[in-house]
Amino acid sequence: MGALKIGLQLYTVRDSAEKDFEGTLRAVAAMNYEGVEFAGYGGKSAEELKALLTELGLTAIGSHISLEQLENNLEGEIEYLKTIGARYGVLPYLQENDRGSDEKWLALIEKLERFGEAFRKEGLIFGYHNHDFEFTEKLDGNYVFDTIYEKVSPERLQVEMDIGWVQYSGLDPLAYIAKYKGRLPLLHLKDYRKGEPGEQIDTVELGQGDLDLPSIIASAEEADVEWIIVEQDRCANPPLEAVKTSREWLSENYKS
């Protein structure tokens, strides 16, 4: 059990990154984030991005890669990750037309096997990032989330657990972290306040929502998580200000 490393999913600051990708990375590095997880590369070549990350002292954790990109440019995505020194490629989300039936989930599982094998052969790690629908839909009598990991081998698929969505779905986040010990290198810390039924999830800065973050972080250490990754879907405050607040909360409340 080692100290957790602290990263940021750059989707959180997507508006800033779209206007000034390099400036956004510089701001994130100045906040003492140790690494970043990408959701797009700001139009930079892999070589350019590698040089910038080296200059800033930021680790490339990995990248969120859409199903369409994985299907149409798998080799290119893998090569880009290798060049920037990243270890993880993660499928972050499924559109509604890619899920919702046993047939669609089974087809996805076949794809996850294929993608994961391609990553494994190149020395990289493939993962899947959950939302809430993996806990509202079932396959083979279990939540889809669990069935996916039962059917795809750990060598081909690791867990990137979004702990906010786990709790939002009414499940015990500490139990789920413990359940996937040894297969859970990446944990997304997404704090939120649960509103009225039917409302969108209200994501907030760390420490301002419903999650028992100290217990979650302690459980992550016990489960051999490598990276805890800050992510906020929508920010009431300016996103760069929000992720700075979250990083400061971690500095004050987590001593590695």
Rank of each mutant, 00 (worst) to 15 (best):
residue 1 M to L: 13
residue 4 L to F: 10
residue 7 G to A: 10
residue 8 L to A: 05
residue 10 L to H: 06
residue 13 V to G: 10
residue 15 D to Y: 09
residue 16 S to C: 06
residue 18 E to L: 10
residue 19 K to V: 05
residue 22 E to G: 03
residue 25 L to M: 11
residue 28 V to P: 14
residue 30 A to D: 15
residue 32 N to C: 01
residue 34 E to W: 00
residue 36 V to E: 00
residue 37 E to V: 15
residue 37 E to Y: 15
residue 39 A to S: 13
residue 45 S to W: 00
residue 46 A to I: 01
residue 47 E to F: 00
residue 56 L to A: 08
residue 58 L to F: 07
residue 58 L to M: 12
residue 58 L to S: 06
residue 61 I to M: 01
residue 61 I to E: 00
residue 61 I to K: 08
residue 64 H to C: 11
residue 65 I to R: 04
residue 65 I to L: 06
residue 66 S to Q: 13
residue 67 L to V: 01
residue 69 Q to R: 14
residue 71 E to I: 08
residue 76 G to K: 11
residue 77 E to S: 14
residue 84 I to G: 12
residue 84 I to K: 12
residue 84 I to S: 10
residue 85 G to W: 00
residue 89 G to E: 09
residue 89 G to T: 14
residue 94 L to P: 13
residue 97 N to K: 07
residue 103 E to M: 05
residue 104 K to V: 00
residue 116 G to L: 08
residue 116 G to A: 14
residue 117 E to M: 15
residue 119 F to P: 07
residue 123 G to S: 00
residue 123 G to V: 10
residue 129 H to A: 07
residue 129 H to W: 00
residue 132 D to L: 11
residue 132 D to K: 05
residue 132 D to R: 00
residue 132 D to I: 13
residue 133 F to T: 11
residue 134 E to L: 02
residue 135 F to G: 02
residue 136 T to H: 06
residue 137 E to W: 09
residue 138 K to C: 11
residue 139 L to E: 13
residue 139 L to W: 12
residue 142 N to W: 01
residue 142 N to S: 06
residue 151 K to M: 02
residue 151 K to V: 00
residue 152 V to S: 09
residue 158 Q to P: 06
residue 159 V to G: 01
residue 161 M to H: 03
residue 166 V to C: 00
residue 168 Y to E: 08
residue 169 S to Y: 02
residue 169 S to I: 14
residue 169 S to L: 05
residue 172 D to L: 12
residue 174 L to Q: 04
residue 174 L to H: 03
residue 176 Y to D: 05
residue 179 K to N: 04
residue 179 K to E: 08
residue 181 K to Y: 12
residue 182 G to F: 07
residue 183 R to S: 15
residue 186 L to Y: 00
residue 193 R to K: 07
residue 198 G to W: 01
residue 199 E to A: 15
residue 200 Q to C: 04
residue 205 E to Q: 02
residue 206 L to H: 09
residue 207 G to T: 02
residue 207 G to E: 01
residue 207 G to M: 07
residue 210 D to F: 10
residue 216 I to W: 07
residue 220 A to W: 04
residue 222 E to N: 10
residue 222 E to M: 01
residue 223 A to R: 03
residue 225 V to D: 04
residue 226 E to V: 10
residue 227 W to N: 03
residue 232 Q to V: 02
residue 232 Q to Y: 09
residue 235 C to G: 01
residue 235 C to Y: 11
residue 235 C to R: 06
residue 235 C to W: 05
residue 237 N to I: 10
residue 239 P to D: 09
residue 239 P to R: 12
residue 239 P to C: 03
residue 241 E to K: 15
residue 243 V to N: 11
residue 244 K to L: 12
residue 245 T to S: 08
residue 245 T to C: 05
residue 248 E to D: 14
residue 252 E to I: 10
residue 253 N to M: 10
residue 253 N to L: 14
residue 254 Y to P: 06
